[in-house]
Amino acid sequence: MEKRRDIYQAIADPTRREIISLIARQSMNLNAIADNFDASRPAISQHIKVLTECGLVMIRQQGRERYCELKIDKLKEVTTWVEECRKYWNATIDSMENYLQELQSKNKKHGKR
Rank of each mutant, 00 (worst) to 15 (best):
E84P: 01
Q46W: 14
E65T: 14
T92K: 10
K108H: 05
D94A: 13
K108T: 07
I59Q: 15
K3I: 08
R16F: 02
Q104R: 14
T15N: 08
L51Q: 00
L56K: 06
T52S: 09
K112D: 07
E84T: 07
R17E: 09
E97Y: 07
M28P: 03
D13K: 13
Q26P: 04
K71G: 01
I20D: 00
I33R: 02
A39T: 05
I44Y: 03
S45T: 11
K87D: 04
L51T: 01
V57W: 00
P14I: 08
R113T: 11
A39S: 12
E53L: 12
Y99H: 14
E65H: 12
M96D: 11
R113S: 10
K74L: 11
E2R: 12
L22E: 03
R64G: 15
A43G: 01
W89P: 01
T79R: 10
R64Q: 13
D73H: 14
H47I: 01
E65A: 15
E2W: 06
D73G: 04
M28G: 05
L56V: 09
E83C: 10
R25C: 08
W81M: 04
R64H: 13
S40F: 11
N98I: 12
Q9C: 07
K106A: 08
N29Y: 12
Q61Y: 08
V57C: 00
D6V: 01
R86H: 09
C54M: 08
L22H: 11
Q104Y: 08
A32F: 02
K76R: 06
Q104A: 12
L30A: 05
E69H: 07
K74R: 14
S45R: 08
N31Y: 10
I59L: 15
N98Y: 14
Q46M: 09
T15A: 12
R60Y: 09
S40A: 13
I20A: 03
N31E: 06
W89A: 01
L30H: 11
K3T: 10
E83Y: 14
I23Y: 00
I72G: 06
T52V: 13
T52Y: 06
F37Y: 11
Q61C: 05
A12W: 02
M58Q: 09
A10W: 00
S40I: 13
R4N: 03
K3C: 03
Q26Y: 04
L22A: 08
S105E: 15
S40T: 15
E2Y: 07
V57I: 15
S27H: 12
G55V: 00
D38E: 15
R16V: 00
L70V: 09
E102G: 09
P42Q: 05
G63D: 06
L30C: 02
G55Y: 08
L103P: 02
A12V: 03
A91T: 07
Q9M: 11
Y67W: 14
A12E: 05
S40K: 13
R64A: 15
A10I: 01
S45W: 04
E18Y: 14
Q62S: 12
H110L: 13
R66F: 11
R5T: 12
T92Y: 15
I7Q: 00
L56E: 00
